[in-house]
Structures are given as structure tokens and as C-alpha cells.
């Protein structure tokens, strides 16, 4: 804990409009990650202009898509002071479901497969959510358990079977190839997810309730918020988004099998944290988490573009995560001091 000795001097209160606008911008939790992303892109472009060639931009967007969708869902869960570690396994199961459906009946409409994947993901998310809310066991423990169970089911189901892009209809693979206004279709889906989730979290009652629950679960309950129902729905939505990501994974990548999506859970949590979502809930935004996801995926491409040895990439990602946490802490401490100074006046 920080020393809560309020020694800061009362500050000047010349709050012109511009100053206030600047102030509110400075308080945006997404700002550091957005700034980092801009700096990263500008610097990389300066070193290697090919980085922002049409193909380069398209690759950046394609690489971010799935991570962004997962980070949005994860952020919603983390904001309620929970976490879902089973998403990698949910992605694996839904990606394999997609492969199975298409290989069985290639004429299946894409929409049907999308719905099937989202439903399966939602069901798995509901399983997590029910265990967490009804049994009252920490989400970290439950979803660590279901991480193994879902993966085991995936392994049992898939065995050694793998489905490749050839097993799927051309139109489905085209989702990750064709572009609208230069943006790949699956990326457009991700953008839509971010916008809708962002609006729900920022402007609607259920969305705000999630923040209240994450800030103080007991107070939220006393206040009359249906906490069980809200937390459950956060898990279901996260599961549905993981299901969507799984289907898109099958469109984006060549093969899906027993190990698809293994080990991505901590990357996704990291993306949310880098994007300013507090690990113990109550603050941050899904938009920030999406930026965090874009930053983490872009940095890999950027390092390749500026010819940094590929072996350094993961270490740099680690440093970035730590930097995000430290900056967040410093900002929080400064705000705390300032609030105390204001309270004293």
C-alpha cells in the first residue's frame, strides 16, 4: 500500500475549458496504451515504410482480430472481479466444431455455423458462470478446472483428427481474405463487437452494474443489483465471444485440431491488463482492452519490420505488460494524492 500521508499542496483551480478537456483526456485509462500504439506504429513506419503497405496493414488487422474479440469478453469478466482462464479451450472446441460441421456438410450456410459456435461458447461460458455464482468459488479456480476439462473434451473429440482449410467452403475462408474498404470482413466483425460491447458497458444499466459489482460486490448487492445474474451474463457473453473467435479462427487459420487455442488465456488477460483493465475489477474498459490486444499483436509485427531478432519479441511483450501495470499504479497513486489534496481544501 502507498503511504496515505496527504502532503500535496492545494493546486490552482484555473480550469478553462481547454484545460478541463485536457484533464479529462488525461484521466482516460485508455490513453497510455493508445499513445504507445501510435508511437509504435509511427516509429516502425519511419524505420521501415513497408510496415504500412496495404498488405502490411491488412496483416496487422487480421492478426489482431481474434485477440481483440477475446480481450473484449475477458475485460467484461475481469471488470466484475472475476477471470476466465478457460477461453483458450473454448476457442479450441468451437474451432473444431466449425471444422467438423463443414467437413460433414460443406453446403451449410456460414451463418448457421457462426450461430452454432456462439451457442456452444455461450453454453460453456454458462457452465463456468453457474459454477462461479452458485457455488461461490473463485473464478480463477473454476475456470482453471474447466480449462483442463474443456481441453480434455476437445482432445477426446478430435483425437488425431485435424481439419484443414480445404475441408471448408471457399466462402468461409474468404471471410479472412476479402475486404470492405480495405478492412477484412472478420476484422469488421471484431470492430462491431468492440463498438457494441463498448456502448453496453459505458451507457447501459447492466454494463454499469458490472463495474459496481467489480468495485465492491457486497455494496452492489446491498444496492439491489442482481449480482448473480449479472456475473453469470458476463461469463455467458464472454463464452459467446470466445465461440465467435473460435469460428473465426477456423476461417483465418489453415488447420484446427486438438490443440487449437492452447495457452492463449494468459495472453488475453495480459492484453486486457495492458489496455488498462484493473486485474481486481471495477475499472477499465472493453475499448481499452481491445487497444491492448492490438498493441500486443502489433508489437510482434513491428519488431519483425524493424528487424529485431525474433527471439526478443516475447521478452519485450513481458516488459510491456510490466510497464502497463507500473504506469497504472503510478497514475492511481497520483490521482489519490490529488483527491486528498482537493478533499482538504
Amino acid at each position: 500500500m502507498s503511504n496515505l500521508t496527504a502532503t500535496a499542496e492545494p493546486t490552482e483551480q484555473d480550469s478553462t475549458w481547454a484545460a478541463r478537456a485536457f484533464e479529462s483526456l488525461r484521466h482516460m485509462r485508455e490513453l497510455p496504451v493508445l499513445a504507445a500504439l501510435v508511437v509504435l506504429i509511427v516509429v516502425t513506419y519511419a524505420v521501415n515504410p513497408l510496415f504500412l503497405s496495404p498488405q502490411g496493414v491488412k496483416d496487422l488487422m487480421l492478426n489482431s482480430t481474434i485477440v481483440v474479440i477475446l480481450a473484449v469478453g475477458q475485460a467484461m469478466v475481469i471488470i466484475t472481479r472475476n477471470v476466465d482462464l478457460s477461453i483458450g479451450s473454448i476457442v479450441g472446441l468451437t474451432a473444431f466444431l466449425t471444422g467438423t460441421l463443414f467437413s460433414g456438410n460443406p453446403d451449410l450456410p456460414i451463418a448457421v455455423v457462426l450461430v452454432a459456435g456462439i451457442l456452444l461458447g455461450g453454453a460453456l461460458g454458462m457452465f463456468n458462470g453457474l459454477l462461479v455464482t452458485l457455488a461461490g468459488v473463485p473464478a480463477l479456480v473454476i475456470t482453471l478446472g474447466t480449462l483442463y476439462i474443456f481441453r480434455g473434451l476437445n482432445n477426446a473429440w478430435a483425437g488425431g483428427t485435424q481439419y484443414f482449410a480445404d475441408d471448408r467452403p471457399q466462402a468461409f475462408g474468404n471471410l479472412s481474405v476479402q475486404t470492405v474498404l480495405g478492412i477484412p470482413i472478420i476484422t469488421l466483425i471484431a470492430v462491431a463487437v468492440v463498438l457494441v460491447a463498448g456502448l453496453v458497458m459505458a451507457r447501459t444499466r447492466p454494463g454499469r452494474d458490472l463495474y459496481a459489482i467489480g468495485s465492491d460486490p457486497d455494496a452492489a448487492k446491498l444496492f439491489g443489483i442482481p449480482t448473480t445474474q449479472r456475473v453469470l451474463s458476463a461469463f455467458v457473453v464472454n463464452g459467446m465471444l470466445a465461440g465467435l473467435a473460435g469460428v473465426l479462427y477456423a476461417s483465418r487459420f489453415n488447420s484446427v485440431g486438438a490443440t487449437t487455442g492452447t495457452g492463449i488465456e494468459l495472453d488475453i488477460v495480459a492484453a486486457a491488463v495492458v489496455g488498462g483493465v484493473a486485474i481486481f475489477g471495477g475499472s477499465g474498459s472493453v475499448v481499452g482492452a481491445a487497444f491492448g490486444a492490438v498493441l500486443l499483436t502489433t508489437i510482434t509485427s513491428a519488431l519483425t519490420a524493424v528487424r529485431v531478432d525474433k527471439f526478443w519479441q516475447q521478452a519485450i511483450v513481458g516488459v510491456l505488460i510490466l510497464a502497463a501495470i507500473i504506469i497504472d499504479r503510478l497514475v492511481a497513486m497520483r490521482n489519490e494524492r490529488k483527491l486528498r489534496a482537493e478533499a482538504q481544501r
Partner: peptide
């Protein structure tokens, strides 16, 4: 005084890197 869950996700990536 940082949360260990977040810190060690960071160092998980860093040390593996």
C-alpha cells in the same frame, strides 16, 4: 505494491522471452 497476478503474468512472458 502491484497485484501479483498481473505482475507474474508479465514476468511469465518476460522470463520465457
Amino acid at each position: 505494491g502491484l497485484p501479483s497476478l498481473a505482475v507474474t503474468i508479465g514476468t511469465l512472458a518476460l522470463y520465457r522471452g
